[in-house]
Protein backbone atom coordinates (compact mmCIF):
# COMPACT_ATOMS: atom_id res chain seq x y z
CA UNK A 1 0.00 0.00 0.00
CA UNK A 2 2.83 2.36 0.81
CA UNK A 3 4.43 1.43 -2.49
CA UNK A 4 1.23 2.44 -4.34
CA UNK A 5 1.31 5.92 -2.76
CA UNK A 6 4.85 6.47 -3.94
CA UNK A 7 4.07 5.53 -7.57
CA UNK A 8 4.05 8.30 -10.17
CA UNK A 9 1.46 7.99 -12.88
CA UNK A 10 2.59 9.80 -16.00
CA UNK A 11 -0.06 10.57 -18.55
CA UNK A 12 1.57 11.03 -21.95
CA UNK A 13 0.45 14.44 -23.18
CA UNK A 14 2.60 14.49 -26.30
CA UNK A 15 -0.10 12.89 -28.53
CA UNK A 16 -2.61 15.38 -27.16
CA UNK A 17 -0.22 18.22 -27.97
CA UNK A 18 0.25 16.84 -31.48
CA UNK A 19 -3.49 16.78 -32.00
CA UNK A 20 -3.85 20.28 -30.56
CA UNK A 21 -1.20 21.59 -32.96
CA UNK A 22 -3.01 19.97 -35.87
CA UNK A 23 -6.26 21.61 -34.82
CA UNK A 24 -4.49 24.94 -34.44
CA UNK A 25 -2.96 24.60 -37.91
CA UNK A 26 -6.41 23.88 -39.38
CA UNK A 27 -7.99 26.92 -37.74
CA UNK A 28 -5.12 29.21 -38.75
CA UNK A 29 -5.33 28.05 -42.38
CA UNK A 30 -9.12 28.36 -42.62
CA UNK A 31 -9.30 31.70 -40.81
CA UNK A 32 -10.43 34.55 -43.06
CA UNK A 33 -10.93 37.82 -41.26
CA UNK A 34 -14.31 39.33 -42.14
CA UNK A 35 -14.05 42.54 -44.18
CA UNK A 36 -15.05 45.76 -42.43
CA UNK A 37 -18.55 45.92 -43.85
CA UNK A 38 -21.12 48.40 -42.68
CA UNK A 39 -24.70 48.85 -43.73
CA UNK A 40 -27.56 51.28 -44.05
CA UNK A 41 -30.70 49.85 -42.47
CA UNK A 42 -33.79 51.36 -43.97
CA UNK A 43 -37.43 50.84 -44.65
CA UNK A 44 -37.86 51.09 -48.38
CA UNK A 45 -41.52 51.62 -49.00
CA UNK A 46 -42.98 51.36 -52.47
CA UNK A 47 -43.22 54.88 -53.96
CA UNK A 48 -46.71 56.29 -53.56
CA UNK A 49 -48.66 59.05 -55.19
CA UNK A 50 -46.90 62.24 -54.26
CA UNK A 51 -47.59 65.90 -53.67
CA UNK A 52 -44.55 68.14 -53.97
CA UNK A 53 -44.08 69.93 -50.64
CA UNK A 54 -42.78 73.01 -52.41
CA UNK A 55 -46.06 73.39 -54.32
CA UNK A 56 -48.52 72.44 -51.61
CA UNK A 57 -49.34 74.35 -48.45
CA UNK A 58 -48.37 72.30 -45.40
CA UNK A 59 -51.25 70.97 -43.39
CA UNK A 60 -51.47 71.53 -39.67
CA UNK A 61 -52.66 68.05 -38.87
CA UNK A 62 -52.47 64.81 -40.69
CA UNK A 63 -55.66 63.82 -42.41
CA UNK A 64 -56.93 60.49 -43.72
CA UNK A 65 -56.28 61.72 -47.26
CA UNK A 66 -52.53 61.56 -46.57
CA UNK A 67 -52.37 57.89 -47.40
CA UNK A 68 -53.56 58.59 -50.88
CA UNK A 69 -51.38 61.60 -51.50
CA UNK A 70 -48.27 61.88 -49.40
CA UNK A 71 -46.31 65.10 -49.15
CA UNK A 72 -43.01 64.27 -50.68
CA UNK A 73 -39.51 65.63 -50.57
CA UNK A 74 -38.19 64.78 -53.99
CA UNK A 75 -34.51 64.33 -54.81
CA UNK A 76 -33.54 63.70 -58.40
CA UNK A 77 -30.22 62.12 -59.34
CA UNK A 78 -29.19 62.27 -63.00
CA UNK A 79 -26.22 60.36 -64.34
CA UNK A 80 -23.39 62.02 -66.20
CA UNK A 81 -20.78 60.15 -68.17
CA UNK A 82 -19.83 56.60 -67.17
CA UNK A 83 -22.73 56.37 -64.73
CA UNK A 84 -21.25 58.96 -62.40
CA UNK A 85 -23.41 61.51 -60.63
CA UNK A 86 -24.12 64.35 -63.02
CA UNK A 87 -26.90 66.52 -61.68
CA UNK A 88 -28.66 66.56 -58.32
CA UNK A 89 -31.85 68.47 -57.62
CA UNK A 90 -33.62 68.71 -54.29
CA UNK A 91 -37.24 69.88 -54.45
CA UNK A 92 -36.52 71.02 -58.03
CA UNK A 93 -33.55 73.15 -56.97
CA UNK A 94 -30.12 72.28 -58.37
CA UNK A 95 -27.56 71.22 -55.79
CA UNK A 96 -23.80 71.57 -56.09
CA UNK A 97 -22.04 68.80 -54.25
CA UNK A 98 -22.81 66.62 -51.25
CA UNK A 99 -22.05 69.30 -48.68
CA UNK A 100 -24.76 71.55 -50.08
CA UNK A 101 -27.17 68.61 -50.29
CA UNK A 102 -26.60 67.86 -46.61
CA UNK A 103 -27.10 71.50 -45.65
CA UNK A 104 -30.33 71.80 -47.65
CA UNK A 105 -31.68 68.48 -46.36
CA UNK A 106 -31.02 69.48 -42.76
CA UNK A 107 -32.89 72.68 -43.49
CA UNK A 108 -35.96 70.68 -44.60
CA UNK A 109 -35.70 68.15 -41.75
CA UNK A 110 -35.40 70.81 -39.05
CA UNK A 111 -38.01 73.15 -40.53
CA UNK A 112 -41.13 72.96 -38.31
CA UNK A 113 -43.37 74.52 -41.00
CA UNK A 114 -42.45 72.48 -44.06
CA UNK A 115 -43.27 68.88 -43.24
CA UNK A 116 -43.16 65.84 -45.45
CA UNK A 117 -44.24 62.23 -45.11
CA UNK A 118 -41.87 60.53 -47.48
CA UNK A 119 -38.51 61.20 -49.05
CA UNK A 120 -38.48 60.08 -52.64
CA UNK A 121 -35.23 59.62 -54.53
CA UNK A 122 -35.69 59.49 -58.29
CA UNK A 123 -32.61 57.90 -59.77
CA UNK A 124 -31.29 57.69 -63.31
CA UNK A 125 -31.34 54.01 -64.31
CA UNK A 126 -27.72 54.25 -65.47
CA UNK A 127 -26.38 55.73 -62.26
CA UNK A 128 -23.83 53.52 -60.54
CA UNK A 129 -24.62 52.10 -57.12
CA UNK A 130 -21.53 53.75 -55.61
CA UNK A 131 -22.85 57.18 -56.65
CA UNK A 132 -26.26 56.42 -55.16
CA UNK A 133 -24.51 55.36 -51.97
CA UNK A 134 -22.91 58.80 -51.67
CA UNK A 135 -26.40 60.31 -51.56
CA UNK A 136 -27.75 57.68 -49.15
CA UNK A 137 -24.70 58.41 -47.01
CA UNK A 138 -25.82 62.04 -46.79
CA UNK A 139 -29.43 61.07 -45.94
CA UNK A 140 -28.18 58.73 -43.21
CA UNK A 141 -25.85 61.27 -41.64
CA UNK A 142 -28.43 64.04 -41.15
CA UNK A 143 -28.69 65.62 -37.72
CA UNK A 144 -30.47 65.34 -35.38
CA UNK A 145 -32.27 62.44 -37.01
CA UNK A 146 -31.19 60.56 -40.14
CA UNK A 147 -33.69 60.03 -42.93
CA UNK A 148 -34.01 56.29 -43.38
CA UNK A 149 -37.60 56.04 -44.56
CA UNK A 150 -36.97 56.41 -48.24
CA UNK A 151 -38.62 55.48 -51.48
CA UNK A 152 -36.78 54.95 -54.72
CA UNK A 153 -38.12 55.32 -58.20
CA UNK A 154 -36.58 55.24 -61.61
CA UNK A 155 -36.18 58.41 -63.61
CA UNK A 156 -38.10 58.04 -66.86
CA UNK A 157 -36.72 59.11 -70.26
CA UNK A 158 -39.18 62.04 -70.28
CA UNK A 159 -37.59 63.28 -67.02
CA UNK A 160 -34.04 63.20 -68.32
CA UNK A 161 -33.18 59.63 -67.41
CA UNK A 162 -31.59 58.51 -70.63
CA UNK A 163 -28.72 56.44 -71.90
CA UNK A 164 -25.25 57.24 -70.56
CA UNK A 165 -23.37 59.95 -72.44
Amino acid sequence: MKKMRGMEIEIPITPMLDMAFQLLTFFILTYRPAPMEGQFSMNLLPAQKAIDITKEQPKEESTPSLDASLRTLKTVLRAGGNGLLGEVTLADRPIQGMDELKKELEGFVNDPVVTFDQALIKVDPHLKYSELMKVIDVFSSLKPKPLTKLSFSELGPDEGGGPPQ
Binding site: E37, F40, G83, P125, H126, K128, L132
Partner: peptide
Amino acid sequence: RDTPFAALFALINTCQTNGYQKFDLKAMN
Protein backbone atom coordinates in the same frame (compact mmCIF):
# COMPACT_ATOMS: atom_id res chain seq x y z
CA ARG B 1 -20.14 49.52 -56.75
CA ASP B 2 -20.57 49.56 -60.56
CA THR B 3 -24.05 48.02 -60.60
CA PRO B 4 -26.45 50.22 -62.57
CA PHE B 5 -29.43 51.44 -60.56
CA ALA B 6 -31.94 49.93 -63.02
CA ALA B 7 -30.88 46.37 -62.11
CA LEU B 8 -30.90 47.13 -58.41
CA PHE B 9 -34.28 48.83 -58.61
CA ALA B 10 -35.77 45.81 -60.37
CA LEU B 11 -34.57 43.57 -57.52
CA ILE B 12 -35.84 45.96 -54.82
CA ASN B 13 -39.20 46.14 -56.62
CA THR B 14 -39.42 42.35 -56.74
CA CYS B 15 -38.70 42.17 -53.03
CA GLN B 16 -41.29 44.84 -52.25
CA THR B 17 -43.88 43.07 -54.41
CA ASN B 18 -43.28 39.91 -52.38
CA GLY B 19 -43.77 41.69 -49.07
CA TYR B 20 -40.27 42.69 -47.99
CA GLN B 21 -39.86 46.24 -46.70
CA LYS B 22 -36.80 46.15 -44.47
CA PHE B 23 -33.56 46.52 -46.38
CA ASP B 24 -29.92 46.64 -45.38
CA LEU B 25 -27.66 48.13 -48.02
CA LYS B 26 -24.09 46.99 -47.49
CA ALA B 27 -21.07 49.24 -47.94
CA MET B 28 -17.48 49.31 -46.84
CA ASN B 29 -16.60 51.51 -43.88
